[in-house]
Design a protein around this nucleic acid. Structure first.
Length: 555
RNA sequence: AGCCUCAUAGUGUAAUGGUAACACUCCGGAUUUUGAUUCCGUCAUUCUAGGUUCGAGUCCUAGUGAGGCUACCA
């Protein structure tokens, strides 16, 4: 995986600004509103902003909580966001800020605008304001309060702050252009009244600034050079620039927009994720089926792979949908080289080795990784009774099936070749047990002359195998674009998105710490669940991503 | 409808105005003590139509298609 920074149109602009001397350094920012958990879409923005800061000497990236709406924001979200940014591998150092710490500055800027005749207190109702704003075809009409005197506006705005009005009775509006083709310029609201407790400022304020007003001021105050945001803010940029121009700010940041991430089979809308959580369709914000950072972390996605993915999809203004296969490839690619191999059987079929006494050793040395010898080896116990995967045996082998069947030979991974000598059925006529004989001396050796052995299967020793709960997670949604589903995205929830099985695993895995990721050979990548794992008692595994052909293809 | 933005393989991205490249997916093949990995191979008249130019994916115009905006959310 190359870590060479990939250029994009934003990095090009930054490079130019540095070369031309417009800026001596570069400061970006990641400004989430703490009203939910971060998801992969945020990861793209985090990798962009912090990534740029890491590539340029002296540059940095601020983490700023854009907390200007007390009704939606909670401290729980603040903490989860910090944790998620850290997990993604980024460090804001001492540059942690809250927009709510700037409330006094925003207020001063508002007063400044009023004094220059560029803002007024409007006492129209929300409905009246909406009506008088007009629409894309017809210009707006002035509010009856648009031409108050500066003095009157100053007094009323002060009264707003002092709590003399109820919610909805008055707002502060910028006086810009009611006939602009850009609706954002039709006298946008700057301040609204909210008698609500703020997670960070408590009851200090009852008027709160709107995003459009606050954001450029926050950026300017922090000397952000490049304010990167998503495409839907494109036609807010003239307003952003208007505030920068008309307020007493210490610097002039530039807003640049890029396309947000959307993935196939994935819901990325915070509102919808919140609904999935609130209505109990998933176990919480960190449910492994969710594209939240905490969800994919719990699912075992390595953060390095997520970073690589973000780099690979690039930054453009094109509004496309990325195939989730690109993400899954990066996860597999990283795990393939980093995850040690272990054996486990998800659907056990008992195998009895009839001539076991011919095998001199009851312990086998097995490599932890087929390509990376630095990962070492481990001992696995071996006894006359083992389990293999039920699907690794076919009584009547189909075409191109190379594993076990009557009379057939197959290698036990890391061990000897065995030949099927018979099978026992239960009362229902199902295969209950397979009998084999092993070929002595074939451990670590090629098949003897005349023995056709084209496959190696995984297995666990019945004498020492432990039971573990394994949750197999599939996609949460069946439709490629859940957002476009008829009947809403909930109508395409996959009822089989989680399956729980009790698997037979190598006993040593029981003691691995939570968060341990390994590959169950031929079964995909597994993580000991970060939340439900109890060391030494019951190992709870999640399946991260499938190995390509054994699982991924069939979906 | 008005304004803004975007348009390169199935998907995501590259390409100082000069041979359209990379990755993923799919499909085929080779190797393999994981049907994994690894390796090789197939897949595009750069949305359309004009124009500028010796030369256009790139610049201009129009059209088409997609996204955004008409919150006291961000």
């Amino acid at each position: 995986m190359s870590d060479t920074p990939k250029s994009d149109f934003i990095r090009d602009i930054i490079t130019e600004d540095l070369a031309s001397g417009k800026h001596r350094t570069t400061i970006t920012r990641f400004p989430p509103e703490p009203n939910g958990y971060l998801h992969l879409g945020h990861a793209k923005s985090i990798c962009l902003n912090f990534g740029i800061a890491g590539e340029i000497p002296g540059a940095k990236c601020h983490l700023r909580f854009d907390d200007t709406n007390p009704e939606k924001e909670e401290t729980e979200y603040v903490e989860s966001i910090k944790e998620d940014v850290k997990w993604l591998g980024f460090d804001w150092g001492s540059d942690l800020y809250y927009a709510s710490d700037y409330f006094e500055f925003f207020y001063e800027c508002a007063v400044h605008l009023i004094q220059h005749g560029l803002a007024y207190v409007d006492q129209e109702s929300p409905e009246e304001i909406k009506l008088h704003r007009g629409n894309v075809q017809t210009p707006g009409t002035p509010s009856a309060y648009r031409d108050r005197t500066v003095q009157e506006n100053l007094e009323m705005f002060s009264a707003m702050r002092a709590g003399k009005y109820q919610e909805g009775e008055a707002v502060l509006r910028a006086k810009i252009d009611l006939s602009s083709s850009n609706m954002n310029m039709r006298d946008p609201v700057l301040y609204r009244i909210m008698h609500a407790r703020h997670h960070h400022t408590g009851d200090a304020w009852c008027i709160y600034p709107m995003y459009d007003f606050a954001h450029p001021l926050e950026d300017a105050l922090e000397h952000i050079t490049h304010s990167l945001c998503t495409l839907e803010f494109e036609n807010h940029r003239p307003l952003y620039d208007w505030f920068i121009e008309h307020c007493p700010v210490p610097s002039k940041p530039r807003q640049i927009e890029f396309a947000r991430l959307s993935l196939t089979y994935t819901i990325m809308s915070k509102r919808k994720l919140l609904q999935l959580v609130n209505e109990g369709h998933v176990g919480g914000w960190d449910d492994p089926r969710l594209p939240t950072i905490s969800g994919i972390r719990r699912r075992g996605y390595p953060s390095a792979a997520v970073r690589h993915f973000c780099k690979r999809i690039g930054i453009t203004k094109y509004n496309g949908t990325t195939d989730v296969a690109l993400l899954e490839h990066d996860i597999r690619d990283h795990l393939n080289t980093h995850a040690p191999r272990r054996m486990a059987v998800l659907d056990p079929l008992e195998v009895v080795i009839e001539n076991f006494s011919d095998e001199p050793t009851a312990r086998l040395t097995v490599s932890n990784h087929p390509q990376d010898e630095t990962m070492g080896e481990r001992c696995v116990s071996f006894s006359p009774r083992i389990f293999i995967e039920r699907e690794d045996f076919q009584e009547v082998p189909e075409k191109k099936f190379f594993r076990l069947g009557p009379e057939r030979y197959v290698r036990l991974r890391g061990g000897p070749i065995v030949q099927c000598t018979g099978l026992d059925q239960n009362a229902a006529g199902e295969i209950a047990r397979v009998r084999v004989r092993l070929l002595p001396g074939t451990t670590g050796k090629d098949a003897p002359e005349g023995v056709v052995c084209k496959a190696a299967i995984h297995w666990v020793d019945a004498a020492t195998a432990a039971d573990a709960e394994v949750r197999l997670y599939d996609r949460l949604f069946t439709a490629e674009d859940p957002d476009a589903a008829e009947g809403g995205f909930l109508s395409v929830l996959n009822p089989n998105s989680v399956r729980v099985v009790t698997a037979k695993i190598e006993a040593s895995l029981l003691n691995e710490p939570a968060g341990y990721v390994c590959q169950f050979e031929r079964n995909g990548y597994f993580i000991t669940d970060l939340k439900d794992h109890v060391a030494g008692e019951k190992a709870v595994f999640n399946r991260t991503v499938a190995l390509k052909d054994s699982w991924g293809k069939s979906r």
